[in-house]
Design a protein around this nucleic acid. Structure first.
Lengths: 339, 339
DNA sequence: TACGTAACCGGTAACGCTACCGGTAATTCC
DNA sequence: GGAATTACCGGTAGCGTTACCGGTTACGTA
């Protein structure tokens, strides 16, 4: 381990005090330009790199922001890229950790980060997360938190999320408008907020169109292709089989698609299908699959923006929820009306 | 900012010295069990959390390992998950940064990390990276480095990579074995190691089978669906059009597929196609597309394993290159021989 | 001439923790 | 019974940096 040069070295070299060097380095007003220049050039010469650890320790600020996500799939990794974008811009380093959808892992990550490693947290909670004590610890320490994608109780932290209800509404409304009348929804786990909100939109669209909802058309299953496959298979067996399916993720849509094809049904004529997230592959399948697109990058940027605002403001009592709008992407799988 | 309790608080509470508390907390042998228990319980009571920043500063070790990747696509994010896995296991925190394939961003990230934030670096360099001074700085400071996925000159750091030449060989050999004779390759940028290695395998397979390579069948283009699409379109126009295409990424395979379909050619009869990475969507396309699978998770784990070994060993002069084997996944797009 | 005021700069403490040295009391050994 | 060993524990320095409080010099101003 070669010795890193410090401000002390610079001071010794110039026969000035370390405090002057420190001030010169940060361009303080009470240092003459002459000494500033001298310091700068010696710093250059010695390849001086400030020891961020020492600084952070001293000023109790790390200038890094912790990001915890359940995984790094298409959606989340794009959101993280958004966070990265504005964080870097603002001079912060981002520390990304994955919880792997595990509550324990999430708690571990938060507690490690809490040990003075980060100035705050931007988090998308795992699907297992039901309690929020680990997050409250940040609040108690007055460290800003913002939640994104997956919601967290508002008392605890501001949220940046998609308008999931509207998204569900949009998808369902589109199917109804295309003449589908017996629409099933492959929802996520029963108590997952993100899933329920999308289902609310589904219900709302039915109500507005005076269609009644068959409870058998509401399927709760895991966010997962295989589950969706089996669920769809079951659905299609029933005598009053649905004529359209709305899945709350594209992966689930794929599972549904496979079951539909196996059954020999044609999309969109026999049955309609619409997914969620608009992953790029959807336009490559036959038929191409409709989906709901969310502004992932913007959600990430917004989360980081709010985070940094809170970091710089004294009063963080106002906890807001930022809701971004989705967009409906119509493709072959759900478009049976010709214009 | 509520005051965090420190070992000083614990010491005061028990009327013992801070050094004893420090030792008790880390279960040192020269502290009686009695005081250890007392310390532990008071620590619990005060919600004591060690200040990792102070510790890291003091012992000049952060216990975090920096990871820099060009992006977080399917392949890289799985590799990162592998790194995460063994790092967490070994008690390290992982700090992931994206360079967005930008050299400038990569340098920025490395230099920030170098400011005593990490104990070393696991990196997959950006495609723009041609010089390695920013990485050498780690070496100069005796901080371990390991490169993965994208290779780095061996003098600088050990590598963990796929056997790209063998992968290229495997794909090409398979196409030849299926009776294709005029095989094109959509390679990456001209000076990208990863791409050239795969091309070497392509050449080797030809040589071994006494097929000569038509230079017009070697196309260099960006790692990108659109480029691949246009390149393929051109290829298919030529009078002696290829009867098979090997692309060095799945995204490129998709681009090629679209061009092939547009041209009205059937896979695998008219033309064969094989991609690279085995992204999950390939099995959903019609036809399903063959590909080369790399052990992503294992590469990540291996990189982290080697990294940690180097962290703990004194002598890091032996710089190795770990080469993992790919696997050929045969699907419809390239299988025209019935058995 | 005396004094106020900039303009600079230096000294020191402190952040929380650990490493090291040294000390005391109790126990063991010949 | 004296020396050596063991089992604990305390004091202190210091990691690199910044914040704070002073101090010195030079220059105006009355």
């Amino acid at each position: 381990m070669k010795k890193q040069s410090t401000i002390k070295d610079i001071a010794k070299r110039l026969n000035i005090s370390i405090s002057t060097v420190s001030r010169a380095l940060k361009n303080a007003p009470d240092v003459s330009n002459e000494t500033k220049n001298a310091v700068m050039s010696v710093a250059e010469e010695l390849h001086y790199q400030p020891n961020r650890l020492a600084v952070s320790f001293r000023v109790k600020q790390t200038n890094t922001i912790g990001v915890i996500v359940p995984n790094l799939d298409y959606v989340l990794s794009t959101m993280v890229k958004g966070i990265d974008e504005v964080a870097l811009e603002a001079g912060y380093t981002v520390m990304v950790c994955q919880s792997n959808e595990s509550f324990g892992r999430e708690v571990l990550n938060t507690s490690r980060m809490l040990q003075s490693l980060v100035d705050g947290l931007i988090i998308s909670v795992s699907s297992e997360t039901k309690t929020f004590d680990h997050i409250k610890k940040f609040v108690e320490r007055d460290l800003p938190i913002v939640a994104f994608d997956r919601i967290v109780p508002e008392i605890i932290a501001p949220n940046v999320i998609l308008d999931n209800e509207y998204a569900g509404y949009l998808a369902t409304e589109h199917l109804i408008e295309q003449g589908y009348k017996n629409i099933a929804i492959l929802a996520g786990p029963k108590n997952l907020g993100i899933s329920n909100a999308r289902m609310d939109g589904y219900l709302k669209a039915h109500k507005e169109n005076n269609l009644k909802v068959d409870q058998k058309n509401i399927i709760h299953c895991d966010f997962n292709q295989d589950y969706a496959y089996f669920a769809t298979k079951e659905l299609l067996k029933s005598k009053n089989r649905p004529d359209a399916i709305f899945t709350i993720s594209d992966r689930m849509a794929i599972g549904a698609m496979i079951a539909i094809k196996e059954r020999g049904l044609k999309m969109p004529t026999d049955i309609g299908l619409i997914g969620f997230n608009n992953e790029p592959m959807l336009s490559l399948l036959t038929p191409t699959i409709s989906s709901i697109e969310q502004p992932m990058f913007e959600i990430g940027k917004m989360a980081a923006k709010i985070f940094i605002e809170r970091l710089h403001s004294e009063d963080n009592s106002n906890v807001t929820t930022e809701i971004l709008k989705p967009r409906l992407i119509i493709r072959e799988s759900s478009k049976r009306k010709m214009i």
